[in-house]
Write a protein that binds this DNA or RNA. Structure first.
Lengths: 250, 250
DNA sequence: GGGTAGTCTTCCACTCAGCGGAAAGGATGG
DNA sequence: CCATCCTTTCCGCTGAGTGGAAGACTACCC
């Protein structure tokens, strides 16, 4: 870009993307220096680039000087065809499940060795939980994650097994225990978790298969509830119907 | 940026933003040359920049060579605090309205002299319509738009009145007729449209006011249905309850 | 009230990253 | 076969971009 660049080879574009990428789930509002640290760029550079991004509405600057993602990127993001067909097919069925259970409902796909939450529906009565749309969480400690893991290729399972990080005291960290669970999940067609990701939250999830190709699991849908004791069968019924419905649309 | 730039003063950043901004509701998939035309940049420049954007996942390139918005921007967009509090407060109530009516449900705010659709819920049975989340439509021909216009400052009303573009044969293009409608809307507390935006679609909408400040209209919610003949009262009841509920959360 | 540590902002001299016209390479279609 | 569209590559010129340094400001502590 210019004379005294510290790291030759870096382009303006890559710097801009680094700044945009500095915003994540846990960092929606950033000061200039936080932004610089997270993007790994000199403060002066970030200062100049953010000024332009704010001018172009890609970022917005709060009265207190902190930065947030702006309108331009919000609108661009809405145009992204991320799992577009899947989302569209699933939306009405997720409504149905939500209406029937009032639980938090998730639609997720596997992205390498992570669960990517594609859609979420939550209400007043729902359990407060971490996942939001766009979250990427480990596969081994969520309901949808376990379903996706159970139907993942062997190498992904191996990768996941090698990194069973503990999130709560109930998180499964033994590869043997998890392998046995995956077996059960494949056999029974559903997965459960008990406070393995968030204390006070249990989940139940089922796979989504296109009815044209019933062997490939393309997504998972699940619900999060305070406890599974009472109505496991009812939730399973609702999810199964929805999963079948979604599969038929694909 | 460099030697033989055609338009001096243009920065790399602004070019990147022009490329991102070239994607809109009606142009989600663009070829290289379309992108160049829409961003008003030389093809060679766009070619180079898109290569970097694709490398950084900001865009994705389809097998046929066309570009779409990529994962990075999708995720960044999700972090945008666009009407965040409003959306969060409204979501459960929109679910309720959807469940009760099975119609397409909208949450919208006014952005200058346009309606900006902030949230949408649609199902299988819903009327097919143009608006999606992020859409910006004229104020005078949609239900939520009329509500927002009726409670807008005088200068916005004047601006809107000066540009009553015709979309369907039923679109209101007479300022006098519209002014009388706005009066009625303010008096009755709701607005309707009949095929003024899309043929075969009617709508009914009500304003959302914070219960702490019942004179300021911060948003509008509405439903779209094939006809209002049958159940105007039922829809109005559902929307009123929801609007009151949302207002109480603000 | 002085010192330290953190912010954000402005300045500016150096220079290489970025520019884009031109030309070549494909694809399609009449 | 030429015409017209697309995409990709090439390359020499230069001003846009760079970031250290210095200044301004705030906040906290002793």
């Amino acid at each position: 870009m210019a004379g005294n660049t510290s790291t030759a080879g870096a382009t303006v574009t890559s710097r801009v993307l680094a700044i945009i990428g500095a915003f994540d789930e846990r960092h929606r509002v950033l000061t200039l220096s936080e932004l610089a640290r997270r993007a790994d760029l000199p403060v002066a550079t970030v200062h100049r680039l953010t000024a332009e991004l704010v001018a172009g509405q890609a970022l917005a600057r709060r009265p207190d000087g902190r930065f947030v993602v702006g309108r331009l990127l919000w609108e661009a993001g809405l145009r992204a065809p991320i799992e577009g067909r899947l989302k569209q097919a699933a939306e009405p069925f997720l409504h149905d499940v939500y209406a029937a259970t009032l639980a938090t409902v998730h639609l997720a796909v596997r992205d390498e060795a992570k669960v990517l939450y594609v859609e979420r529906m939550a209400g007043r009565a729902s359990v407060p939980i971490v996942s939001t749309v766009g979250s990427r969480l480990p596969l081994h400690c969520t309901g949808v994650g376990k379903v996706l893991l159970a139907h993942a290729p062997a190498d992904v399972i191996d990768t996941a097994m090698g990194d069973l990080i503990r999130i709560t005291p109930h998180t499964i960290t033994s590869a043997d225990v998890l392998r046995r669970q995956l077996e059960t999940i494949r056999r029974d067609g559903y997965a459960t978790t008990s406070e393995e990701m968030s204390p006070g939250a249990c989940s139940l999830a089922v796979p989504v298969m296109p009815s044209s190709d019933p062997d490939s699991v393309v997504a998972a849908i699940g619900v999060v509830v305070p406890t599974l004791k009472r109505d496991r069968q009812r939730l399973l019924a609702a999810l199964s119907v929805a999963a079948r419905g979604i599969g038929r649309q694909l």
